[in-house]
Design a protein around this nucleic acid. Structure first.
Lengths: 202, 202
DNA sequence: CATCATTGTAGTCAACGACAACATTGGGAA
DNA sequence: TTCCCAATGTTGTCGTTGACTACAATGATG
């Protein structure tokens, strides 16, 4: 692939990489296909060969974001030699770590305004994300660390708490409370709330 | 104000009303100043007399959204003749009710991409929102229904859980779980997690 | 009645997304 | 090998938008 070659050679990947950088520093609204093309030294219509429209590019970014996020969460969930509640907390920390590092991307991933095409794929990835938590909850139930109930719904609760905190942190609604403190407290309240009722449950 | 009068008479209000409707049915991205002007039968530059730019209009919408939301939450928080934990739950339900009825608006309110001008006002309104919860938490602490700790930080936790659930609901990540069920479970876990440790706390 | 700030209008510009027609390239079929 | 064609990139264009400027109508205030 010579210097001034007609074909870029790897435009799709290059677009995604550059797009992620722009997304991080200018948000989704500031991301234009034309400026992306300029940045990469290709013509303004070149991106359309790889992404049908703007949404398709954004959706592709979201998909790759889920790959990263789910990977990080899985790693935290499967950490060896740690009690299940500790791993549950670690998954939450992994989520929050991703959220603060990729704020705009997270927004893209969970704020549903996707094209119908990749909507299915994104939905599925979102469910994978939830399922990681659900599996861990189920394991914690077997270990007696979490109350009875549908693990999927309990995972939804755990996910909500974490996701909500992430959104607040990203939206700078925490001001004087350090994120680390808010994280600790949230996870503590959450795990306490999930614990089986010590009085027994007839 | 005659029919074909030069001055609209109430353009600012009309813009906000129409904008809220468009926002609800097309989202923030589908809201254009020019189409708004067309809808109201004024020239394309008329809106600029009332909103410096697009962001300013969106911010104004967010401000009015906070007025509604905070009002609903305050009403729930001050319901007479109800125990404090029940009112805490009602505030959560009020929040979720607002969220599902005004999904796009909530997004606008909490996803921080505001103009520097109204940023302060919006921040303050967000804090008011949190403070409603914090006050209630403090009251619940006095009643022995919530563990010790900074009420503001505990409110942050409660807010996170509710906000997160709202975001998931709006993003249709709940699929088969009815929102009402998810709400009940979330509030139950949350209130359980906030309860003082029954084993005593030396 | 004159003045003038407020509010709306008309015109313009650059940027963008989308689309269509055309050019270049390289790999596989004949 | 040669030819063809699908993939990929380019140029040109259209309609829409946000933002800006200069100008016009209005009505309240003095």
């Amino acid at each position: 692939m010579a210097e001034g070659s007609y074909h870029h050679g790897n435009l799709r990947t290059a677009l995604l990489e550059r797009a992620e950088a722009v997304l991080a520093e200018s948000g989704a609204d500031g991301l234009s296909l034309r400026s992306l093309a300029r940045d990469l030294g290709v013509s303004h219509a070149a991106p359309s060969r790889h992404f049908r429209d703007r949404r398709a590019l954004l959706d592709a970014l979201a998909v790759s974001g889920f790959a990263t996020l789910n990977g990080a969460m899985r790693a935290a969930a499967e950490a060896p030699d740690r009690p299940v509640t500790a791993r549950l907390a670690e998954v939450g920390r992994a989520y929050l770590g991703f959220a603060v590092r990729h704020a705009a991307l997270l927004d893209l991933m969970f704020t549903a305004k996707h094209a119908e095409d990749s909507s299915n794929e994104l939905c599925e990835l979102g469910h994978d994300c939830l399922e990681i938590v659900a599996r861990l909850i189920a394991e914690a139930q077997r270990a007696g660390a979490v109350r009875d109930g549908d693990p999927v719904r309990l995972a939804l609760v755990a996910f909500s708490a974490t996701h909500g905190l992430a959104m607040l942190a990203v939206g700078s609604l925490l001001d004087d409370t350090p994120l680390a403190d808010a994280t600790d407290l949230t996870l503590d309240v959450l795990l306490a709330g999930l614990r089986p009722d010590p009085a027994g449950s007839p």
